[in-house]
């Protein structure tokens, strides 16, 4: 059962990553696309807590790092999404039926987007992976932030429902 749940989560990540590189480039603004994998991790963090989200972030980041168009050092997105997953997981409303406020969800997504993209950019800066100037980086980070905030109301609630449904404790209690 838990294997199937893990598989479902992995499938969601896979779809997110594939959509991120196939569908959204058609809508890209200045080449920046929304971070779907990051939004999946945010939704997981808000429903399932830091540990699950960090692991999901690791898997999703690794997919982003290794899936075809990627050219950077493997592990950079993984690192960024692990931290994002953990931090957003800490924001989860404790308790059984705790549901975050909609404003809280958007704020969490915005913070996560900023944190994730910045971390990725920073590792790039440290490793001199693609040599990009800081103003360019900031522009990309801000555009990505706007994208993610725009897509949050459309995606995150649905993903949160999905993650809540597949939550082991809830399933056993229901």
């Amino acid at each position: 059962m838990s294997l199937i749940r893990g598989f479902v989560a992995f499938l969601i990540l896979l779809v997110a990553v594939v959509l991120q590189v196939t569908f959204f480039p058609h809508l890209a603004w200045h080449g920046v696309v929304p971070d779907l994998a990051l939004l999946v991790v945010v939704a997981a963090g808000l429903t399932r807590g830091p540990q699950f989200a960090a692991i999901l972030g690791f898997v999703g980041g690794l997919l982003l790092d290794l899936a075809p168009p990627a050219d950077h050092y493997a592990g950079r997105w993984a690192l960024a999404l692990v931290v994002v997953g953990y931090v957003v997981g800490r924001l989860r409303v404790p308790g059984q039926g705790g549901r975050p406020e909609p404003v809280m969800v958007v704020a969490a997504a915005a913070a996560a987007s900023f944190l994730g993209t910045s971390l990725f950019a920073l590792t790039g800066l440290v490793l001199k992976d693609p040599v990009v100037s800081v103003p360019d980086m900031l522009q990309v980070i801000l555009v990505a932030l706007v994208w993610d905030v725009l897509l949050t109301p459309l995606l995150v609630p649905a993903l949160m429902v999905l993650f809540r449904r597949t939550e082991p404790a809830r399933v056993s209690l229901a």
């Binding site: 830091p50 692991i55 493997a74 592990g75 993984a78 690192l79 692990v82 953990y86």
Partner: peptide, 28 residues
């Protein structure tokens, strides 16, 4: 019980971050 969960997730975080660092190093 939140305390053990906290500790456990923190150790997961450390483990994952270290894994990431390893991966980056390997690729580097």
């Amino acid at each position: 019980r939140l305390e053990p969960a906290d500790r456990s997730s923190r150790s997961t975080l450390v483990a994952l971050v270290l894994t990431c660092a390893t991966l980056i190093t390997l690729d580097h």
